[in-house]
């Protein structure tokens, strides 16, 4: 219970950082933080304290559910490609506007 609430706190902090950061790079970083926290939430939910990893060995024991883990690997790979695309966009935005500050960027957008 305590662990789940701490993970929810992480998700909340990630959302807060995403909403309040003024620097574009910082926003992208907090998007990744949020994603990692959500992955942790799913893994914690399907965690058996006395279980083993979902790999068949001679040791035996009850394995953890492998389905959420397979989905989370998909999430990580897609998150990496989204981040790469977002970073390229940030470079282009910097070259065109000369700043990465959300506030100044929005002002420039309004002026045009």
């Amino acid at each position: 219970m305590l662990q789940l609430s701490l993970i929810l706190l992480m998700i909340g902090l990630g959302l807060y950082g995403l909403a309040t950061s003024r620097h574009l790079i910082k926003s992208i970083i907090f998007l990744n933080v949020l994603e990692a926290a959500v992955i942790l939430f799913f893994l914690r939910l399907f965690y058996l304290p006395e279980g083993t990893a979902p790999i068949i060995t001679s040791l035996g024991g009850e394995a953890v559910d492998p389905l959420p883990q397979a989905l989370m690997i998909t999430t990580i790979v897609i998150g990496a490609s989204v981040t790469a695309l977002a970073l390229m966009m940030s470079i282009k935005i910097y070259h065109q506007y000369g700043t990465l500050d959300w506030k100044i960027l929005l002002e420039k957008e309004d002026n045009q």
């Binding site: 939910l45 399907f46 965690y47 058996l48 979902p54 394995a63 559910d65 492998p66 389905l67 959420p68």
Partner: peptide
């Protein structure tokens, strides 16, 4: 400790 039915089948 929820477990998806698919996960059980896979195991």
């Amino acid at each position: 400790f929820p477990e998806t039915s698919i996960g059980e089948t896979v195991i």
